[in-house]
Structures are given as C-alpha cells and as structure tokens.
Amino acid sequence: MAVYLLRRVALAVGVLWAAYTVSFVVLYLLPGDPVATMAAGGSDGEPVSPAQLDALRARYGLDQPLITQYGTKLWAALHGDFGTSFATGRDVRGAIGDALPPTLQIALSGLLVAIVFGSAVALVATYTRVRWLRQVLMGLPSLAVSLPVFWVGLMLVQLFSFRLGLLPSVGARGPEALVLPAITLGLPTGALIAQVLAKSMSQVLDEPYVTTARAKGVGEAGVHLRHALGNAVIPALTVLGYVVGNLLAGSVVVETVFTRPGLGRLTVSSVGVQDIPVVQGIVVFAALVFVLVNLVVDLVYPVLDPRITTGAAV
C-alpha cells in the first residue's frame, strides 16, 4: 500500500515537473517577442528605443541563455516563486491567489451541478424501461457537449435575465449571480459524467455477476444500486481529474461571458498582452490541480476496489 502511494506521488511530481517544462518550452522557445509586446502595450504605442528593450530584457532575465533561464526559473518555482507579471509587475503567485476565490466558487458549484445532472441522467437512463425516456436521456449528453459554452451562457442570460428578469446577468455579487455561471459551467461537464457513467453502467449490467444477482431473486433496484453502481463508479472515477481540470479551464469562457472576476479573466487578459509568467503560472497551477485530484482518486480507489489493495490483480 505504501509502495503504491509512493509511486503515485513520485509520478505526480514527475508530471508537474514535465508540465512546467512543457509550458516553458512553449512560452519561451517559440517565436514572439514578449518584451516588445509588453513595451508597446505599456507605453501606448510610443516607439521604444532598443536600449529600453534591452533594459527590460535584463530586468526579467530574458537576456540570459535559455538553459540558464530555465534553471533559475525552475529553482525559483520549486520555492513557490513564479516570477512577476510583465504587465502589472505583480508577484504571479499573489495574482493567482487573488483571482482564485471567485473561480473556486463557480467551479465548485459547477461541479455540484455536473455531478447531480450527470449521475441523475446516467442512472435514470439505465434504469428506466420506458423506451422513449431512455432515448431522450441518452441523447441529452451528446446534445449538451455539442453546444458552445459561451453561447449557452449568453442564451441563458438572454432568457433568464433579460426576458424573465429572474437572475442577474453579470457580476459576482450574491448567490443568485452564481446560478447561471454554475449551470453554464456544469452542463458540458455533467454531460461528460453522464456519458462515462451510463456507458460504464450498461457494460456492468451485462456482466455475468449481474445475472448471478438476478438469479438470486434480487430486484432491479437492488441490482442497480447494490451490484452495478459500485462497479460502474470505478472506471467513471478516472475522468474526475479531467473533469475538474475542465471546470477550471471552463472558467476562462464563463467568466468572460458573465463578466466575473477570477482566474479565467486573469488568463484572458494575460494572454492578450503576452504576459508569459502569469500564463505559465496558471498552466502549472492547472496541472497541479489535476495531479492533486488524481492523487485523491488514487487514495479512494482501494476503498472502492478491493482488487487493488490485496495486490492480486496484477
């Protein structure tokens, strides 16, 4: 068990390091001159002298050879220092920390919507014997993942804020302001959960051990809840890391649509001005969240699946 966990942690650290490296390669190695962009953005189009550019480069360490830059930055990152923003001069960690709480709000409420919507659709669709209901429910997820998120958000605003006047269209004040963003964010994610869980459920329901249970005289509800669900959840859990990452990434669009502050807005504005340190900080942060969620899933796995702890299933 301890070995299992240690391996997982080591793997997680490896993924994080690699994510840092990939983002470094993408952001610093690819063509594009962030300093020029930054200088242009900062001085409202006034021409900037080459000397000024060099000074800026020196200030951010961009005049060093790339490998030196990588070493210094990685070392700093290991100590929690992701540098300072090109655009605002703020500490990147502080900027992300400030932007996080409102994003967490919509991400968590989105997750709630997703899990409730996703599992309800999957369970009812596999349980019901009413053919049309099953078909409608099975069709919902593929419909939901086909709709552009930003458009769904805008249509919800048009309907509930402008037509019906029930909910605020923009801003982050009060729990009402959370409803539409949470639905917008949770819908595609919930659809994903529904698809994975429904597929997993219907596979499990075809397993011979389900026949064994039925042959004992167990009723349909018992078969679904006592036998099928426990087995079906296991493969469905593997997408949880992906789901949470999706919610985080979805905030980029949702916060823009609903004009809310948060990590997503920070991302959009940073990309707009090629603020490399902030973008890299956000990318690594997303990878960190993904890795942490997967670690938690790995911890939960042995509880749900006895085959892992006893090591017999190799």
């Binding site: 011979p208 051990y209 026949t211 042959a215 004992k216 005289g217 167990v218 749900l304 006895p306």
Partner: peptide, 23 residues
C-alpha cells in the same frame, strides 16, 4: 423474483466473472 433463487437456483457458466468483484 420470488421464484428465482428460492425455487430455481442457477449455477452460471464462468465462475471467474460471475461474482461481484467488489463485494
């Protein structure tokens, strides 16, 4: 359901897949 298990017992084909793995 009251007949299955109580009056007719079924012994399935492949024992390796006929028991619930998580119970």
């Amino acid at each position: 359901r009251a007949v299955r298990g109580a009056r007719i017992g079924l012994i399935p084909q492949d024992p390796t897949v006929s028991l619930n793995p998580v119970q």
